[in-house]
Write a protein that binds this DNA or RNA. Structure first.
Length: 277
DNA sequence: ACCCAGGCATTGG
DNA sequence: CCAATGCATGGG
């Protein structure tokens, strides 16, 4: 057993809840109590272990992926201390103690996932995305490697519309694959510059850029104010159910500075697992 | 047969 | 600058 230790508290079930909430994700698969993902042709499995997670196999290639998936980059202690000063969070955050938001390890996968989730329900989004993963990805044992940018650059619009993509979304997925842009270099840019760069591509708007900052780059201040799920969560926890506007949610983000990202994740997971009475 | 769901680009005022 | 519209699937 090869353990990656994480600071206490750490709750594996809570941290991986998202992988079970909207049906299976073939590229990030929950299977027999563990998380599976294909890394460099090999299938990685992560499961709960005392003091952290058990990772098989563990080496220089799989460790960064595993650390991303279990949200190791987040520092929870300062967030928990700060949350004591916000009434709603003082109540909610301890109920989710040990929740580490999972990060998406791959930038192209992150963008395609966002595109598939635009406008439609997450159940529909995963269904369509899974068909793309089966069609263009490489199978490990149980999970599939998410289709590479290089592979998708060679795909055709028709091959994607056959899988249920709208013509527009097929264009976006191929356009991002073929764009003259180093996605791996985006982490060198400021939040603002990442947003400007991404929204310069067709099909990537502010919502998509905000989730990229939050779920791929783990930027502390990322706040996807336009997200329907976050609007619902904010409305439930902060306005007694009265539906807030996107502008109100954006405005409210300033109150959570500099922990907007963790706050958003705790609210979203909180709405599913510990909703207000 | 509807309607809504973790948006975005396009078009018309 | 803002409002209206089309998009394609899954679940209710």
């Amino acid at each position: 057993m090869t353990v990656l230790s994480l600071p206490e508290p750490f709750d594996f079930e809570l941290s991986t809840e998202r992988f079970r909430a909207f049906g299976p994700d073939l590229a990030n698969l929950w299977y027999e109590g563990g998380f599976h993902r294909v890394v460099g042709g090999r299938e990685l499995r992560i499961e709960a272990a005392p003091g952290g997670v058990d990772i098989e196999p563990l080496d220089d290639e799989t460790e960064p992926v595993a650390r991303a998936v279990v949200g190791a980059a987040f520092e929870l202690e300062p967030f928990y201390e700060w949350a004591q000063g916000v009434e709603v969070l003082r109540e909610l955050v301890p109920r989710l103690a040990g929740f580490r938001p999972p990060l998406a390890p791959d930038p192209y996968e992150t963008l395609v996932s966002a595109i598939t989730a635009q406008q439609v329900s997450l159940f529909a989004a995963f269904a369509i995305r899974n068909r793309m993963v089966e069609r263009f990805g490489v199978r490990g044992v149980h999970a599939y490697e998410f289709p590479t940018r290089e592979r998708m650059a060679q795909a055709s619009e028709e091959e994607l519309t056959e899988l249920g993509f709208s013509r527009r979304k097929a264009e976006y997925v191929l356009g991002v694959a073929r764009a003259e842009l180093d996605l791996e270099a985006l982490h060198n840019l400021s939040d603002h510059d990442v947003k400007v760069t991404l929204t310069g591509l067709r099909g990537l708007g502010e919502w998509t850029a905000d989730w990229f900052l939050a779920r791929h780059l783990a930027r502390p201040r990322a706040w996807p104010a336009g997200d329907l799920g976050l609007v619902k969560a904010m409305s439930a926890f902060f306005s007694g159910g009265r539906k807030l506007s996107i502008a109100e949610v954006r405005e409210a983000g300033a109150r959570f500075d500099p922990f907007q990202n963790l706050t958003a994740h705790y609210l979203l997971t909180g709405l599913r697992t510990a909703p207000p009475a």
